[in-house]
Computed example of a mutant assay.
Amino acid sequence: MDDIDPIAIVTGAGRGIGRAVAVRLSREGYKLALTSRNESELRETADLCQGETMVIPADITSAEAIETLFDSVEDAWGAAEVLVANAGSGFAAPIHKTTDAQWASMLDLNLTAPFRCIRRAVPNMVAAKRGRIVVVASVAAKQGEPYISAYTASKHGILGVVRSAAAELAKTGVTVNAVCPGYVDTPMTAQTVSEIVSRTGRTADDARSALEAKQANGRLVTADEVADAVWACVANGAINGQGINVDGGGLQS
């Protein structure tokens, strides 16, 4: 990964983990193609990055949008050497109240969209004999937790894709890994806190404390700590097929 101005694509780059990953990659000399639904958030991320960026607002659950994303990057700069598939979301509901639409929404965003991005990125990476694919998954990719059956299924699924792709590509110079955070201090966790407040009547502080208490080190993970793990997967070609836990030590593997 020693070319001048290497190229990376980061999905879900408007805030939280995606923003931290984009900033980290920019500091390491990467040109950044940033995508999410929210253009204003993407531009805020771009302003924080060093070097050249490209802002491409898109709904990553659209197969056509993924093609446009990659085509735009390749037309302007060339093929990406790094893909960080970070876009994702979650929701909580008892399994008997989880609707087909909610189930499909989780699989579309957390499983099918990153699979499509990986599928689109791989041919050029294999042709170049090098590439790094990192999916931001979750500790929910490895263990179940009440009320998040659809989210957990989607994250288990994408970890399976990562492991299979890594085995398939191991001799090509392309690595595929997942980073599996616990509760991270991001807008997504803030949404989880709001849902707990709405469902239980607890205060926001109590709800946040409950999430902190779920982690072995008693605090939320920072977005920068997740970005550091993503960077390790990018920088080290011997890391492949892994689901790297970033949760303060709660889930040991």
Rank of each mutant, 00 (worst) to 15 (best):
V174L: 12
A238H: 13
G12I: 08
K129C: 13
L220C: 05
A153T: 14
A76H: 10
V10E: 12
R163W: 14
E67P: 03
V134P: 05
A85S: 15
V84F: 13
G237Y: 09
I4R: 09
V73H: 03
A229I: 02
G241A: 08
F91I: 02
G29I: 01
V10I: 15
V139Q: 00
E168S: 10
D2M: 04
K31I: 05
V179K: 01
I7N: 08
D224C: 03
D247V: 05
E195M: 11
S26Y: 04
T222S: 14
G18T: 01
L251Q: 03
V84I: 15
H96R: 07
A178M: 12
S194A: 14
Q50F: 09
S89F: 10
G182S: 05
P181I: 01
G157S: 06
A141I: 01
G173T: 14
Y147V: 12
V184Q: 04
A213R: 14
E44Q: 09
G14I: 08
F115G: 10
T175R: 11
L169W: 07
P6Q: 13
Q215H: 15
A216E: 02
G88K: 00
T99Y: 04
D71Q: 12
T192K: 07
R119M: 07
Q50K: 14
A140Y: 08
E52R: 12
I95H: 00
N110M: 01
G201Y: 06
I60E: 00
E212N: 10
R163Q: 15
R130V: 09
E145F: 14
A137G: 01
E212S: 03
E44F: 06
T35H: 02
P187R: 05
T152I: 15
H156Q: 00
A113W: 00
G249E: 00
N110H: 06
P57M: 02
E44V: 02
C49I: 06
